[in-house]
Every structure is written in C-alpha cells, then in structure tokens.
Amino acid sequence: MKSAIELFRSETFLNNNLKLFVNRCSENFDAPFHAHDFVEYCYVAEGKGFHHIGEDVIPVHKGMLFVIPIGIPHVFRPSSPNLSVTPLIIYNCLFNAELTSTLSTIIQEQAICDHLKQLELNQMPYVHVVDHTQQIEEIMIRLYKESSLLDTGSSTMLFTLVSQLVVMTYRQYQQDYKQKHSNTDDFEHVLRYLDHHIHERIRLRDLVRISSWSEKHLGRLFLKHTGQTFGSYLQYLRIQKSCELLKSSQHNVSLIAELVGYRDVDTFYAVFKRITGTTPHMYRKSYTSD
C-alpha cells in the first residue's frame, strides 16, 4: 500500500509541557498513510484488522503492540467497513526527542536508552511484540486514564508509566528475538521453500516431505514463528510477492496472479483487496503516479 505520505508533526499533538500525547481511537478507512517526527507506541486493544507499515501488511489482533520510529510511514485499517460491528480500537502513546531525553535520566540501563535513541534517529526498523501477559495493556490503560485526568502528580505518574511501557516492550522484544533465533534454522528452510515455490500449488503435506515434521507440528511452528496459520502466511506471502511484481514489472494482473500461485484471477483480486485495501490496478497506479 503506497500513496501520498502525509507528515504528522509534533506541534500538532505534543503541545503540552510533557511532550506526551496518549489517546484511544477507533480506526477507519479515512486516516492517511503517514509518517511522523515523533516516536509512537500503538497497542491493539480491541478488534482485528491490518497494519500497513513501510512495505509490510500485518494482520493485527488484540494484544499486539507496535513501536514506530520517527520517519516510518504506516496506517491501521479495520478488517471490515462495518465499524459498528467490528471496530479496531488502538491506544496510541506519542513522544518526541524532548521526552526521550527525560526518560534517559530515569531509565538506568544503557541498552534501553540506546534503543530509544535509535528509534528517535530512525536507525532501526519498527518493533512488533505480542502482550502475552496483558501487562503492557494495563500500562496503556493507566497511561490513558492519567493523561485524561491531569491531576496533582500526573507528570510524575506519566513519566513513570511511559518508562514502564518502554522497559516492558523492550523486554518482550528481546525475549522474542532470542526465542526466534534459537534453533530456527530448520524452519527457515521451510520458509525459504515457500518463497522459492510461491508459483506452485503448496499444501501443508508438501512441507512434511521437505521437513520431516508432522502437519500438526508444522502448524504449531507457523503460529510460533510467524504469528499466523500456514494458510494465512502463504496467502500473505503470495500477496506480498504480487505487490513486488506490480511495482517492478509490466506484467498484466492475470500473469502476476499466476506467478504467485493463483489459478483463478477473481480469487486473486478478492484476496488482494482484502489484504491491501485496494485493487491490483489501483496499487500499481499509485506507484506509477508517484
């Protein structure tokens, strides 16, 4: 998903002494694809949908948290246009370099301070973690309530809560990184196989043959390492590859659908629209227009 990228500036949101903004909002299809000159922590509180971030499209659900560095474009989209039935609710916590400097005097660990600095300088990709224990959700709720009250001592409370948010997210990020990179070589082989055979009909039993794992165990590994079922991961991989071809080639849409493994172009159109929020033709047009 790429269209004109709007820039959200600090002075629009961070116009208080704390240089901090916290809100709770229902996402829709009107918000623009945007970047900003502040760091943003986004927590999925309710519903399902998709997070378009950089070149990635990530299905989201309750408990997922994203940390968006300065300069990284993104936007959330709900899974359904019927917002009254399936709303996508996000908590946002925004702060800029001024608050980062303050946090660096509170947070004692140099590694976490360096992490904040990298976010501020756009020296690392976005961060994505899952709040398995609901501890991050609790911090987000308290942040939102405290920022709404602004009572005596609120500044101290908010600085403390933001510090907790940063530390808890960093801890989860490190744990996920270690788990992901421990004994994953064999599963990486499975992912490479999918990448190289995306044009073919691929079933889970085909992966049993190349991995010597059972279908049940493979299903667990897909959830563990990708956060998706095998079917969902394969579908999103096909659409990701089709986006690359739409940008880099002059192939017609029917051929691209075939190159990424779809034998029925109508199915390809339906899946592409559901995942990206637009049609293949409009997706390509947005790039050629840019």
Rank of each mutant, 00 (worst) to 15 (best):
V129I: 13
M124E: 08
T100D: 01
S101K: 15
I139P: 00
L94S: 04
D131K: 13
V129R: 05
L116H: 01
C93Q: 11
Q108F: 08
V130H: 12
E120D: 15
H128T: 10
I107W: 01
L88W: 03
E120N: 12
P81F: 14
C113E: 03
D114A: 01
T102W: 01
N92D: 02
S148V: 09
K145P: 02
S147L: 04
Q123E: 10
H128A: 10
T86V: 04
L103T: 05
T86I: 03
V127S: 10
S80P: 09
L143K: 08
T100I: 08
I89A: 09
L83P: 10
E120K: 08
P125T: 00
Y91Q: 11
A111R: 04
L119G: 04
I89M: 07
T86E: 06
T105S: 09
E120P: 01
I89W: 12
Q123A: 06
P87Q: 07
Q134Y: 01
S101Y: 14
M124K: 12
A111I: 09
L121V: 07
M124Q: 15
I90W: 01
M124C: 06
T86C: 00
E98S: 13
N92Y: 14
E146V: 07
S80Y: 03
S101A: 11
E98F: 01
N122L: 11
P81S: 13
P81G: 12
P125A: 04
Q134P: 02
E98W: 01
N92G: 09
Q108W: 10
S80N: 15
I141C: 00
Q123H: 02
I112H: 07
I107V: 06
L119H: 00
S147I: 04
Y126G: 04
E120Y: 02
N122R: 10
Y126D: 05
F95V: 14
V127E: 03
E146T: 04
L116N: 05
I112D: 03
C113I: 01
I106V: 14
Y126N: 13
T100E: 00
L103W: 02
E98V: 11
H128N: 00
T105F: 07
L143A: 11
L99S: 13
L119T: 00
A111W: 00
E138T: 11
Q134F: 07
V130T: 14
N96R: 13
S147R: 05
Q135T: 13
F95T: 11
K145H: 12
Q134T: 12
E138K: 12
M140C: 14
S84C: 11
S148Q: 15
Q134D: 10
M140R: 11
C93I: 09
E109Y: 13
I106K: 08
S80H: 01
L116F: 07
Q108H: 06
H115K: 08
E98K: 14
L103M: 02
Q110D: 07
E109H: 11
T133G: 09
T105D: 15
E137T: 10
L83N: 04
T105W: 02
V130W: 00
E137Y: 04
I141A: 09
Q134I: 07
H132L: 15
L103K: 04
Y91A: 12
M124H: 02
N96Q: 12
Q118W: 11
I90K: 06
I106H: 03
D114G: 03
H115T: 08
S101F: 06
L88C: 03
S101D: 12
P125N: 06
I139C: 02
T102S: 11
T102F: 03
I90T: 05
S147Q: 10
L94T: 05
L149C: 05
P87M: 14
S147H: 14
S147Y: 03
D131I: 01
